[in-house]
Amino acid sequence: MRRLQVAGRTSVITGSASGMGADVARNLAARGAHLALIDRDGEKLEGLAAEIRSAHPAVTVTTHTVDLRDDDAVADTAADIVSAHPGVQTLITCAGSSMLGSLDQLTMEEMRWLMDVNLWGTVSITQALLPALRRAPDAHITHMASVYALAAPAGRIPYAMSKFAVRAFSEALRHELEETSVTVGAVYPAGVRTGIILHGRYAGAIDPAVAARAAAAQAAMYHTDPADAAERIVQGTIRRKARTMIGRESRLIDTLVRATPVHYWRAMRGPLREAIDTTTPMPGVR
């Protein structure tokens, strides 16, 4: 399988206003790729675009402010991108959020919201851009899954559901497109210091201080720099890899689940104990 030559071709990146999405954009721009940046935060998106244009004047950068839960808006955005960028080669879906809480604490609305963001937003932009990607001599789609698409921890039901579904979508789509010029892969990061857990949502039934403590405990386990993760994502895209593992923990968990698919939680429960505790009151609070 031929590696992609990204210079002079267009990469579409969702969730690109911050975190790994922004670093993926910077990495690809440094390689000479043109960019179509998607995010719902237009102000941050314009700031990143200005930074990239200044650093790489030869790179064409367009910005597209859209909520990926709005299918009609996504379709319009895809049309705008194709009009501005005739050579769309890659789609990298970094948009997503997190959700803390047990099933007893979560509402159906909260869980549906996360599925809409993490899963259906990914499906919608992929479907909208697939015709343009099919027209490329070689193209690749990279979906952001998670280490929690390999193993499902307590206290993260909607997040794990959404990421397992992204994994399934990626694998099924890869099989559908195996006779075409488009390849598909998923990324399984663990412990990237993006702030997603600190800025994500939590069940409204949880005391905010308790939620903050649990989120901080999870964030303390993150060690990979976002720029390093972005390099792995870009390399996986260029090499058109089906699976890209990021972080030592992702490889350990993948091995653990393969070895003991029923009982892997016994090994994970201890390290995650504080991060999944959304019920114990804070000291001094009744």
Rank of each mutant, 00 (worst) to 15 (best):
L4P: 03
Q5T: 12
S18P: 08
M20K: 07
R26P: 07
R31W: 10
R53Q: 12
A58W: 06
A58K: 12
V59W: 11
D70N: 07
D71V: 09
A73P: 04
T77C: 14
A84D: 09
A84G: 02
P86A: 13
V88R: 03
A95V: 01
S98W: 02
M99C: 05
L100P: 13
L103T: 12
M108D: 13
W113G: 08
L119A: 01
W120M: 11
S124F: 00
I125N: 05
T126S: 10
L133F: 05
D138Q: 14
M144Q: 07
Y159D: 00
A160T: 01
A160Q: 01
M161F: 14
K163Q: 05
H175N: 14
H175Q: 15
T183S: 14
A186M: 04
Y188A: 03
G191R: 05
G200L: 00
R201S: 12
R201Q: 11
G204E: 12
A205M: 08
A212I: 02
R213Q: 09
R213W: 02
A215N: 07
A215L: 00
A217V: 06
A219P: 10
A219E: 14
A220D: 11
H223N: 09
E231A: 15
E231Q: 14
R232N: 08
Q235N: 13
G236A: 01
R240F: 01
I246H: 06
I246P: 08
E249V: 11
R266E: 04
A267Q: 13
A267E: 15
T280A: 05
M282F: 05
